[in-house]
């Protein structure tokens, strides 16, 4: 049984506020991250008592796992997923190492415009029609969810993006076959 000493959990309020809004706490949020890192057992016990599933990913981030989202959040998540997959393909087409490029390179407006132009019919389905739409609808939301960080030149992707890469790897032939049958 974990004993929870609330006096130690000094950042509880801030952490709860961030996590409950869907934010991913990664190493860039130094204070919160350290706090979670040091008292992970207590926080986990506390959040599971509140009906949440506080998840620690070894690649350096914490989030509240959930098995479904509201239609609106689902739409946002789909847009992010599509953007990430297209980014990977884009970097690979340029002959870069996609995993490295995605975390090293800044996504600026120019890149966003290129992405939207090259994949117009896909982004159209999500009502994203231009680079600035992509910035507004996807990247600013990614910042709010802790998936990216805004810099002077554009946006840097953060470690929680691995959730999407995992999701990408999960799509396999079986899912695909299932879809085919549905069609």
């Amino acid at each position: 049984m974990t004993t929870i000493n609330l006096a130690h959990l000094t950042e509880l309020q801030a952490i709860n506020k961030k996590l409950a809004s869907g934010y991913h706490i990664s190493e860039q949020d130094t204070t919160l991250w350290q706090q979670l890192d040091q008292n992970i057992d207590a926080y986990q016990a506390l959040f599971s008592a509140l009906g949440h599933d506080l998840h620690h990913d070894a690649r350096g981030f914490y989030y509240l796992a959930s098995d479904e989202s509201t239609p609106n959040m689902g739409k946002i998540s789909r847009a992010i997923a599509l953007t990430v997959f297209i980014l990977i393909e884009h970097f690979a087409n340029q002959g870069k190492d996609p995993l490295r490029a995605i975390f090293d390179e800044t996504a600026d407006l120019e890149l966003m415009q290129t992405l939207v132009q090259l994949n117009k019919h896909l982004f159209d389905q999500l009502e994203i029609f231009s680079g600035s739409d992509l910035r507004k609808d996807v990247y600013l939301r990614m910042v709010r969810l802790g998936l990216a960080r805004e810099t002077e030149q554009g946006f840097m992707h953060l470690a929680p993006l691995y959730r999407y890469i995992d999701a990408l790897m999960e799509v396999n032939e079986e899912n695909f076959d299932g879809l085919e049958e549905e069609l």
Binding site: S69, G74, S77, L145, A167
Partner: peptide, 9 residues
Amino acid sequence: SPVQPEFVS
């Protein structure tokens, strides 16, 4: 839809 990560808000 079946694969995207989900968020709590």
